[in-house]
Design a protein around this nucleic acid. Structure first.
Lengths: 236, 236
DNA sequence: TAGATTGTTAATCGATTAACAATC
DNA sequence: TAGATTGTTAATCGATTAACAATC
């Protein structure tokens, strides 16, 4: 699969299909659990069972990371973990800045798991004077005007955007000016950004829409989410 | 499209494809903005431009809600809004309970926008004795043991699951015992639930994986997220 | 060896996009 | 009327699944 014949040429880095990439973090969790059980090898069948998928899909997903398994034995857990992390850019956690320390920004700052998942938020910014200087989960809040210099000095390439909607475009512009090239966007989609800057927008309302519409479409109590009575299975 | 010939028969409620459903909330935002501008009519072309899509897709997406437009004029904004909200189950916001008032749970409780998006969190639970009784964004935190009775009394059908991973299955079981039939899950996927209970899992690490892997695959600075120098465009 | 598992090619499935007649 | 827009059928595209030879 990988042909390391010309290591000097800047190879066209494989992108990989989005659905596969989205499944990779889940596989990492399974690998960690299996390693904790004392196993060193794992097969696609095992991963598939643990994640509720079929083995072929797991195999295809793993293949995009460049890993090569062995028939009969499967994959070395350690090597597979490295391969996935390397592909995702999670080998060393990237340093990131966060702007907008409202309740969501605060929650993200407090979610320490991200450090294992490629993201280490090393700076937090907010324009609210009453917040500046205060500590939130160990980070001192700075004024956004400090971002450009600091980001360039620290070579920050990832920004987490959590400001209120009306400040979203300005804050994104500031990130771009600061040399940030990838934005994890918790504001609405539709930011105008120069080419070469990557955005991933988290739309919580999209998943909420799926949940509520499926609930509404359920066989029982079809037209409302406040059923007349939960127990009246067969009304006359 | 809609043939209201047999209103008494419990019609097989249309489900609709997930990608379309995920886009509907975004259209609602556009409709609200257009209404604020004083418009009463809107075409798919306009919605498509505002959301960065093509008109046919918007039309197909809107069609799943049952709305019928008029050639030349498009759709009545008010009627379209109602149709989307009705399809999503957002006409009246559903009352929901949240369990796990850590930093993420706190953020969700504080995010008042959800009330416009079909979700009104009217109860918050946490097993931590130091939290019980305290107010978080206007809700008093209760012990989880109070959930079953309260949920049945209030006919709660939606639960928001924000507990630490190790308590996830127990908390989900408690929700099911409480009569909750749809779970918005912020813990890891893989909850074991009886048939008929709907789960939507929010995997922030999945979107983070897409962001970091795309960044890693960018033409500039391909193999690291800490570039040697941002300004050295053409190194010799 | 036999059998489980891999990697890969082909078939299926579903969503997106294109094409176009119908309509206001 | 002419032209923009809708609803719908057909074509394309991409992802998932099935089938199978290769391998340890």
């Amino acid at each position: 699969m990988q042909q390391p014949s010309e290591p000097s040429k800047p190879r066209p880095m494989p992108l990989g299909p989005t659905p596969s990439i989205r499944r990779l973090p889940r596989y990492l969790e399974v690998l960690e659990a299996e390693l904790a059980k004392g196993h060193t090898q794992i097969s696609c069948t095992t991963i598939a069972e643990a994640t509720g998928q079929i083995a072929v899909q797991v195999r295809k997903d793993l293949a995009i990371t460049g890993i090569v398994g062995r028939p009969r034995t499967g994959y070395q857990i350690a090597a597979l973990t490295d391969s996935i992390k390397s592909f995702l850019g999670w080998s060393d956690s990237c340093e990131a800045f966060l702007i907008g320390v409202g309740s969501l920004g605060r929650a993200i700052l407090g979610y320490s798991d991200f450090k294992q998942h490629g993201l280490d938020i090393v700076g937090a910014f907010d324009a609210d004077p009453s917040k500046i200087g205060s500590l939130v989960h160990g980070r001192q809040i700075l004024h956004p005007s400090k971002m450009p210099n600091l980001a360039r000095r620290m070579n920050i390439t990832i920004g987490v955007l959590c400001v209120p909607q009306k400040f979203a475009q300005d804050a994104a512009d500031l990130m771009v000016q600061s040399g940030i090239r990838a934005i994890w966007n918790f504001t609405r989609p539709g930011l105008k950004l120069p080419p070469g800057v990557i955005v991933e927008t988290v739309q919580l309302t999209a998943t909420l829409a799926v949940l509520t519409s499926r609930l509404k479409a359920m066989p029982k109590d079809p037209n409302t989410c406040i059923p007349a009575s939960i127990h009246s299975k067969n009304r006359p």
